[in-house]
């Protein structure tokens, strides 16, 4: 017999007592989600983040914070799900970590790998991950007065969560638009992909030091 209405408070449990924690982790492995449903949810997330916000940087920070816990969880989930037991250990070097993000994470979230991965020439601790058409921005047109805003800051938060979860502390991951009329980069590429976005990943100094030591150790 179920409890009468109104007496229970807080979380509702299914009648067979099976919560999300009792389910097999692989159950939703190949499940897909309605894009429209996500688009409307994302609209509400942005409207929520926009409340009492001071500026564009603040708004991006909030979106980033919303994505961060997702990244922490996705790292473990995706590693648990890998079929090969050897590849289910956490990445310990920068390059495998970035590969994991660009391939496994991107495939899981967006159904395709990221479009390019580059290392900054000026700063050895900075990496650039390119997405020609971020799925989260598919239906979003940013108004002219907010042209600096890129709502893929949410995805940047997910990346930051993955990096932090794997033990690679970052100074922050940020999303910037590099398509359309913005400056820099290849002109034809910019015209072809007006929504092209770069995710700047800036690792902390200690991470780079560790990377160097591991490199010398012949790892």
């Amino acid at each position: 017999m179920s409890a009468p209405q109104g007496t229970t408070s807080g979380l509702r449990y299914p009648s067979n007592k099976k919560t999300i924690y009792d389910r097999n982790l692989n159950r939703s492995k190949n499940a897909e989600l309605s894009r429209a449903a996500f688009a409307y949810l994302f609209v509400e997330m942005i409207s929520y983040a926009q409340k009492r916000v001071k500026g564009i940087a603040d708004l991006e920070k909030r979106l980033n914070t919303q994505g961060y816990p997702l990244g922490l969880r996705l790292l473990d989930l995706l590693l648990t799900r890998t079929a090969n037991p050897l590849s289910s250990i956490r990445p310990t070097r920068i390059l495998p970590l970035l590969q994991f993000i660009a391939q496994t994470l991107w495939r899981h979230l967006f159904g395709r790998p990221a479009d390019a991965l580059e290392r900054s020439e000026s700063d050895p601790g900075q990496y650039m991950l390119y997405d020609n058409e971020p799925l989260v921005n598919q239906y979003i047109s940013t108004p002219r007065e907010m042209s600096q805003l890129n709502c893929a800051a949410y995805v940047a938060g997910i990346i930051e969560g993955v990096c932090d979860g794997a033990g690679f502390a970052t100074e922050g991951v940020t999303a910037h638009s590099v398509g359309g009329e913005s400056e820099g980069g290849d002109k034809t590429e910019r015209e072809m992909w007006p929504g092209r976005t770069v995710f700047l990943i800036q690792f902390k100094k200690e991470v780079l030091e560790r990377e160097e030591i591991m490199g010398r150790g012949g790892g």
């Binding site: 429209a36 688009a39 409307y40 994302f42 609209v43 942005i46 409207s47 926009q50 239906y139 979003i140 047109s141 940013t142 108004p143 907010m146 709502c151």
Partner: peptide
Amino acid sequence: ADYVMKNPF
């Protein structure tokens, strides 16, 4: 429906 209603702005 796509580009106007799903636009948060």
